[in-house]
Amino acid sequence: MVEPRPSAPTGCEGTEVVIEVDGLSMVYSERGAETVALQDANLSVLNGEFVSLIGPSGCGKTTLLRLVADLIQPTSGRLEVAGKSPRQARLDREYGYVFQAPVLYDWRTVLKNVMLPLEIMGVPRDERRLRAARLLERVGLSGFHQQYPWQLSGGMQQRVSIARALAFDPKLLLMDEPFGALDEITREAMNLELLRIWEETRKTVVFVTHSIPEAVFLSGRIVVMTPRPGKIERVVEVDLPYPRDPETRESERFFELATEVREALRGGH
């Protein structure tokens, strides 16, 4: 097992540590039976990095993400987000979260869905309209302001959800299998789009996926996790140069890295 450590950047990351995970464990107990969802995880994510968490179901990747977002609290270990406790980071709105499902509110138009976090944070009306419109433009949905979510396709809905997560300009973007429900073709288009947005905004992204090509294509680093108990198996550095385009997927290095990740995943058993 390779000890995970901050590694040499392949893109243009800074050196500030955004997420510091140190010996983090999460144990669920229900009716006397204990499930170890995450065991002794150690990880540092630097500013501007694109990190993927990959692994089969039950490996604790979503748990780790939810811990970072302070949606659940760890059983033991230390966790710092943007140099603060996760709770403080949440209260300071340091991260945006994108779920597997778009989780758009039926009764709000596309524009208003994007404006929702700004409303909650008390941004003045004119400014939030401006920012939401800009973000929708960025995700390629300029013409859809007044549509209701059910009038959009699955890919478009997820793009709205990403725009919403970026709306309040958080430092950190947490994405939990955002394209898991999309078909392969849409997913690849969305991957390209996400990369473009990432390159434009320079956010730190933690991306949970169970697709090896997706992880390799997007990330600078891939954290490979294995289940029972959920733990970090190893970290694979992806040295494909940015910016990446569809041809990247066909390069030899891409296949080598994918094989490496696949072997790491198998190694857990």
């Binding site: 977002a69 302070d70 949606l71 949440r90 209260l91 709105r93 991260y95 945006g96 979260y97 779920f99 499902a101 989780v103 509110y105 929702l116 976090p117 909650i120 944070m121």
Partner: peptide, 10 residues
């Protein structure tokens, strides 16, 4: 999930 989202917005 929608409740989680609101929680993430504090």
């Amino acid at each position: 999930l929608a409740l989680d989202l609101m929680r993430s917005y504090a």
